[in-house]
Write a protein that binds this DNA or RNA. Structure first.
Lengths: 330, 330
DNA sequence: TTGTAGGCGTTATCAT
DNA sequence: ATGATAACGCCTACAA
C-alpha cells in the first residue's frame, strides 16, 4: 500500500496525498477528509526509506558501546535511546566488544545505513582504529563521543572528568579524614584508567604523601577482579586503610575479599567505588561512591546529537563532573 | 558519491559498477580492477536505503524490550544484537517502558522504517494493545515474541517456561528437603507472575501441602521490593523456612530484610531466586537460583527471526526450560 | 561483456 | 487547490 494506491482510491493525485500526509496548507478541507478516510481505512504508514532517499536523512542514529550487559553502558544507552526517541530519532544499537576489527565493520554498516549521526560511548573507543574508521566512512557524519580524545571537523566530545572523582576521593580520604595509606585499584588499559592513576599520584603528592607503587593494583572489572586485587595487595604485604576502586562492582568483590581477611569496612578499610549503579546501593553497608552521572551523560550525548543535526552550533567539548556520594563504606 | 560518480570516473556504466559491487560474474577482470580501484580510492559505500527501496528489505530488526537497564533485558538484548549482527542484520533498540501508549508509537515507527521483522521481549508485551498494534502496522511483518501468548499468521512464540522454575524449586524444597512452609514472592501483574503463582499452588498441593495465602506476597522487582515483601510477611506474622522470589535482585533485598530480623540464610530460611544474573553471584552466600538462560533465549530469538526471514519454516512455538543452580542459599 | 531504461515510494518544483 | 514530472541511489531485465 503506497501513495499511488491511496491516490487512486480517493480519486486524487499522489501530490495531494503527499500534501495531506504532511499537513501542507493548500488542500481543501473536503479532499483532506476524503483522503484522510482512505488513509485510516488502510492504516497507511509512509515508507521512511523512500522518504530518506529524497530527504537525505534517515532519522536514525548509531549508538556504539562496548557491551550493554555492563550496567554502566546499559544506563547510558537506555537514556540515549529514550532521548533520541523523544527527538524523533531511532537508535541502532551496536555492541562493539573489545575486538577492534568489529568496530570498523560496525562503522561501515552504519555508514551504509546512512545514519544521520553516530554516538560512541566509552574511552575504549579512543583508538587509532576508530579514528581511521571515522575518517574513512563518516567524514561528513556528525559523531558525538563520550570520554574520547579524538578530534575532527565532525567530532564532538563530551567527557565526564572521571579523574575528578579521584580528586574528590582523595580530598575526602586524605584531606578530611586524614588517611595517608590509600590503595588504588586501576582499570585495565583504558584511557580513563590511566588518567585516574595520574591524578591519584598527583593528589597524593599534593597532600605530601609519597607515592607507593605497592599500593596500586591493576585488575579487570567485576567481582572476581576485585577479589583478585585485594588478594594481590595481601600477597605484597601492602598495608592500607582506604581503597579507591575503579568500579562499584569491582569494589564489591574487593570488600568480599577484605572480609575473608577479617578486615572490616569501613572501620579497618574505607572503600570508595565508582559509577553509582545498583551495585553500590545493594552493597552492605551501602557503598560510598563517585557518581559519574550516567543519566546526565546519556542526556547530554543525545542532546548534543540533536543540536548538531538541527544546525545549532554546540561546544565541541563539554565536560561533566562527577560527584561524591557518601554512604556507608567511607 | 554514488554509482554515477564511480561510473563516470572509471569510464563504465552504472550497471557495470553495480556488477562489481555485487560480485556478479560476467565482468572482465580488467574492468573489475579498474572500477575496484576507484571504489577504494573514494571509500565508496553503497546506500543501503536506496538498496532497501528496490530490494524491499532493510536488514533491520526492531528489538523491543521493557528497559535495558534491567540486567535481564540487557543480557537478552545484547545477545540478540550480536546474533543479528552476525546474520547481517541491524538492531533498532526500543525501550518501551511500562507506558502502553508508547508501545504503539514504537511499533508504528518500526513499520515506517520498514524493518524486516520485530522481536519483542517480555511478558508485559502480551497485551491487547500490543496485539492491536501488530494487527494495525505489522500484519505482514514477522514478529518473534518471548514469553507472550499472542497469536497470528506472522507471530512466532518462543517461551521460557518460567513456571517450570517453580516446579524445580518446590521439588527441591518440598521433595528433596522436606520443607513445607514455603513463602512465595510474586511479580506484579505480569503473565509470567500469575503462571508462577498457579504452579506454586499446584505443586504444593501435589506434595499435600495446603495453600496458605498468607505466605504469598506481591511486590515490585528490586532490592526495596524484596525488603518490603519480607517486611509484609513479618507484619502478617507468617512463618516460613523457605522463600521463592521472583527475581534475584529482589531476593537480595529479601535477604537483607531477613538479616534485619536475625534470620539466617540458608539455616533459618532457604532462598531461591530467579534469573541468575550477577546479582545471584555476588550475593552472600551465593544465591541458589533458577537460571532462565538468557543467552540461550537471545540466541533462540535471533535465530528464529533469521530463519523466518530466510523462508525456512520454524515451529511457531518453541519452549525453553530453566534450570536450578544450587549455590549457597538453599 | 557492457549499456540503456524502467522502477522502488517518496518529496518538491512547476504548471495548470 | 490540484496534478504531472523529475529527482533520490540503486538493481535488473533486456538490448546491443
Amino acid at each position: 500500500m503506497n501513495i499511488y494506491d491511496i491516490a487512486k482510491e480517493s480519486g486524487v493525485s499522489i501530490s495531494t496525498v503527499s500534501r495531506v500526509l504532511n499537513n501542507h496548507p493548500n488542500v481543501t478541507e473536503k479532499t483532506r477528509e476524503r483522503v484522510g478516510a482512505v488513509l485510516k481505512k488502510h492504516n497507511y504508514v509512509p515508507s521512511s526509506v523512500a522518504k530518506s532517499l529524497v530527504n537525505k536523512a534517515t532519522h536514525a542514529i548509531g549508538v556504539m558501546a562496548l557491551d550493554v550487559r555492563h550496567l554502566h553502558y546499559a544506563n547510558i544507552a537506555f537514556t540515549i535511546e529514550q532521548k533520541l526517541s523523544s527527538y524523533g530519532y531511532t537508535a541502532i544499537l551496536c555492541n562493539t566488544g573489545y575486538d577492534r576489527t568489529k568496530m570498523d565493520d560496525y562503522v561501515r554498516v552504519l555508514a551504509e545505513k546512512q545514519v544521520d549521526g553516530v554516538i560512541m560511548v566509552g574511552s575504549v573507543m579512543s583508538s587509532e582504529e576508530t579514528a581511521a574508521s571515522i575518517e574513512r566512512y563518516l567524514r561528513t557524519t556528525p559523531v558525538v563521543m563520550h570520554n574520547t580524545t579524538l578530534h575532527g571537523e565532525n567530532i564532538y566530545n563530551i567527557s565526564t572528568e572521571e579523574a575528578h572523582g579521584i580528586v574528590l576521593s582523595v580530598d575526602y580520604l586524605a584531606g578530611e579524614r586524614g588517611i595517608r595509606d590509600i590503595a588504588f585499584v586501576q582499570d585495565y588499559d583504558t584511557t580513563v584508567g590511566y588518567q585516574k592513576h595520574a591524578t591519584y599520584r598527583e593528589k597524593l603528592e599534593a597532600y605530601g604523601i609519597p607515592y607507593d607503587k605497592r599500593l596500586v593494583v591493576r585488575t579487570k572489572s567485576g567481582v572476581e577482579g576485585g577479589r583478585a586485587a585485594v588478594a594481590e595487595l595481601a600477597e605484597r604485604g601492602a598495608e592500607y586503610s582506604a581503597l579507591i576502586g575503579c568500579d562499584d562492582i569491582t569494589c564489591l568483590g574487593a570488600m568480599r575479599q577484605l572480609a575473608v581477611y577479617g578486615r572490616r569496612v569501613p572501620e579497618d578499610v574505607a572503600v570508595i567505588g565508582f559509577n553509582n549503579t545498583v551495585f553500590a546501593e545493594i552493597s552492605d553497608p551501602p557503598m560510598t561512591v563517585i557518581d559519574n552521572k550516567e543519566e546526565m551523560t546519556g542526556i547530554a550525548l543525545a542532546r548534543a546529537m540533536a543540536d548538531v543535526l538541527r544546525g545549532r552550533d554546540i561546544a565541541s567539548q563539554t565536560i561533566l563532573y562527577p560527584e561524591l556520594i557518601r554512604r556507608g563504606t567511607a
